[in-house]
Simulated scan of single mutants.
Amino acid sequence: MQKNSKIYIAGHRGMVGSSLLRNLEAKGFTNLALRTSSELDLRNTAAVAEFFEKEKPEYVFLAAAKVGGIMANNTYRADFLYENLMIQNNVIHQSYLSGVQKLLFLGSSCIYPKMAPQPLKEDYLLTGTLEPTNEPYAIAKIAGIKMCDAYRSQYNCNFISAMPTNLYGPNDNYDLNNSHVLPAMLRKFHEAKNDNNRDVELWGSGTPLREFLHTDDLAEACVFLMENFNDYGQINLGIGEDLSIKELAELIQKITGHEGNIIWDSSKPDGTPRKLMDVSKINDMGWKAKISLEEGITKVYQDKFLV
């Protein structure tokens, strides 16, 4: 990518897209094509076709998606499948039709089988059944990977796929019904601290293991891949370390200064037992995450709740 290359970030207002925008602007990229969801509905095929015909971006970061935590994924199963398929189908196909030089499609670690060996290697895709609670979202993301590969095979498009682990960072979603575990915990502990350190109730047993990557690290990895990766299949993005949900809760309790009790509701689902990414492929290419979990959460907490 040249500094004046026209770059389209699909989803630039979201947590991932906004990190990409900050990263590219900091690096001196100035020719950015941006549309909010109200300006361009990526589920609308005709609207997306008109946008690509008019703007003719050279590079596309496909970070737009309908996302949420366990409850949202399990409740709005049809919406998660339909909307994500429509978004990626439209953007990937129109990128091909308008001659985009390179596209990066972003997925999620939930594409891997629920009981896959740990850490999760890229080769484990489609080797077993998925976690039932987020299967529709995972199916959509798997379709996106295969779509990029198919367009590469049939049309020689330079479309690549990257699968991040669990993400957190600025512009996260803190809605307790639809958010992921880390931002939901931050909000719960913060509000409990401000309410006389009342007890915090959390879902599940606390035993599942999870890995978390700051979106600023993710954005750095995406730009690195846009400049260095040109191949079939997905590449994993993560920090290469995990911790239990119980350890995460205790870390967030420490960062927020909450002094009450933590109560685990074991009647609620745990989700996948473990989701640690094997990131040796991108590490071997020369990229590694830099932001530690405690450092990253502390910064997010200060910026969101202590301003």
Rank of each mutant, 00 (worst) to 15 (best):
M71Y: 15
E201L: 03
Q2T: 12
E211R: 04
R187V: 07
I262Y: 01
A47Q: 13
I142V: 13
C157Q: 07
Y124A: 09
E211K: 02
G204N: 06
L125E: 12
I111N: 05
L120N: 04
T129C: 07
A140G: 05
G271N: 01
N74Q: 11
E211T: 04
L97V: 13
D242S: 15
E55T: 11
L306S: 14
Y232H: 00
S292V: 08
Y168W: 07
G28Y: 06
F51A: 03
D265V: 01
L81P: 03
H190D: 10
A116N: 00
F105R: 06
T129I: 09
Q253Y: 00
D172S: 10
E122N: 08
L120C: 06
K3D: 13
N196W: 00
R13F: 04
K6F: 02
G238F: 05
S244M: 03
L176K: 09
D242L: 02
N236C: 11
R274Q: 15
M15I: 05
A192V: 05
I87H: 09
C157A: 06
A65I: 05
A192G: 04
R22F: 12
G271K: 00
E131A: 11
K304Q: 15
N196A: 08
S161A: 13
K188T: 08
T133K: 12
H12D: 14
L243T: 13
M71A: 15
Q234G: 13
H12T: 02
S280H: 10
D265A: 09
L293E: 07
D41G: 05
I111V: 12
A221G: 14
E247R: 05
N134C: 13
I139C: 08
L21M: 02
F229Q: 10
M163Y: 15
K246V: 03
L218E: 10
L213I: 15
R152E: 09
E250Y: 10
Q302N: 15
K121E: 09
R198N: 11
A78Q: 13
L85K: 01
Y59L: 13
